[in-house]
Nucleic acid binder design. Structure first.
Ligand SMILES: [Mn+2]
Ligand SMILES: [Mn+2]
Ligand SMILES: [Mn+2]
Ligand SMILES: [Mn+2]
Lengths: 217, 217
DNA sequence: AACATACTTTAGGTTTGCCAAAATTAATAT
DNA sequence: ATATTAATTTTGGCAAACCTAAAGTATGTT
């Protein structure tokens, strides 16, 4: 599989392709490609046995595809841990680097890297490295936007997209922080929370809060 | 520049393209490509400003091309040090991995990696990491095949090609070993040396000895 | 039931990096 | 000077990933 194809598989996984049917449009948006390009690639990935595709309905991952995606994601996250913890590169810069490293890392290197890093459980953005824990995160985590007013939650994971990471860097807000959801205003697209850990108010748009994964604290 | 193009530039450098004109055939052999493919790429690299090309005579690197090659080679060697020293991967396996990693390593990552590794001077095969030391090696090192009978030399560098590394692994023979050249027989393609460091006789074909770089001990 | 709209697919085309076969050139030997 | 040989270049073609424009489909609205 080419690096290109691995990125498609990964996006399918990240968009829930293990269970749902993922639309070509969403894949195209994520990878910044045109929809026809995605259609074409889906057919290739079907032939390769990683994807099931229903015309006009979208793609889902086969077991083989899901396993493959997890392997790449594991490598991605191991590199992120290395880059942050050993090289001291900032948390918002590592994603771009890992996005390339993940495709040129043999299984043996990944395994030895994991040992060297002393079996980290999560990447710097809170993503699980262990396969089972990946599954658990997918079922048990919800986005901050889905939390009812009044609930107290813990920030478990930030989707690592460049812009978001910059936002969370400027706002003082980290993985593990405890938030109380004080108000959700769909009209003005705003969610108001109180960050207990940092002892300060945190307001953010609902659209951004969709990329913040939390679990009941 | 694509990874492909970076590999061409690197091969030109390794084949002496800083000073000599390198033939398309030798590049084609090294990269396991057809000669027409190389001709084609040379024209592209001329346009990009990295190569000067004289039809039917071969390619040489411009200053810009030389600098570029050194940057890639530095990254390659830094990764090799990391893979051997930190992950414990064997010396004959790291080359293949570094061959890919070198193309996806930002300058910042390379710099931080160098700090993390505490400024190593050489890769596991004896290749210099510092630009000036690369130049020194190129001018001062000669191949074992060029040494006169009776001379005592130190193994400074092994060209990292898969097959050779395997050979030097089975023979007990490492960077830094002191060799005395006892006999050179061009007829039967054999060079006989005595490895002072390991206190044992070492015989190898002249063709292989062309890939062993030494300096007067 | 007909329409509008949003998404998907098809069709045709580009670029990069590769190839084999044939033609050309340079260098060497006679 | 001519012939042979080896390397190089030209030519024509292919596959992977991308694109735009146009045609087709599904779905919800009136
Ligand atoms: Mn990637
Ligand atoms: Mn991450
Ligand atoms: Mn390479
Ligand atoms: Mn090396």
């Amino acid at each position: 599989m080419s690096a290109t194809q691995e990125d498609y598989i990964k996006v399918l996984f990240e968009l829930g392709g293990k269970s749902r049917n993922v639309s070509n449009k969403s894949v195209a948006e994520r990878l910044e490609l045109s929809p026809p390009t995605v259609t074409e690639m889906m057919n290739i990935l079907v032939t390769a046995g990683y994807v099931e595709y229903v015309k006009y309905k979208g793609a889902s991952l086969t077991d083989s595809g899901t396993r493959y995606a997890k392997h790449i994601i594991r490598k991605h996250r191991l590199w992120e841990v290395f880059l942050v913890e050993k090289l001291g590169i900032s948390i918002d810069a590592v994603h771009r680097e890992a996005e390339l490293l993940e495709h040129v890392t043999g299984d043996d290197v990944a395994d030895k890297l994991e040992v060297f890093l002393d079996y980290p459980k999560f990447c710097p953005h809170g993503g699980a490295i262990d396969f089972d824990e990946m599954d658990r995160q997918e079922t048990e985590l919800k986005t901050l936007s889905e939390v009812e007013v009044g609930r107290t939650v813990k920030i478990s994971r930030i989707i690592d997209e460049e812009k978001l990471l910059m936002f969370f860097k400027t706002q003082k807000c980290d993985i593990g922080d405890i938030l109380v959801v004080e108000d959700v205003d769909e009209q003005i697209d705003l969610i108001t929370t109180y960050n207990k850990t940092k002892d300060q108010r945190l307001q953010l748009s609902l659209s951004i809060s969709k990329y913040l994964f939390v679990e009941t604290a």
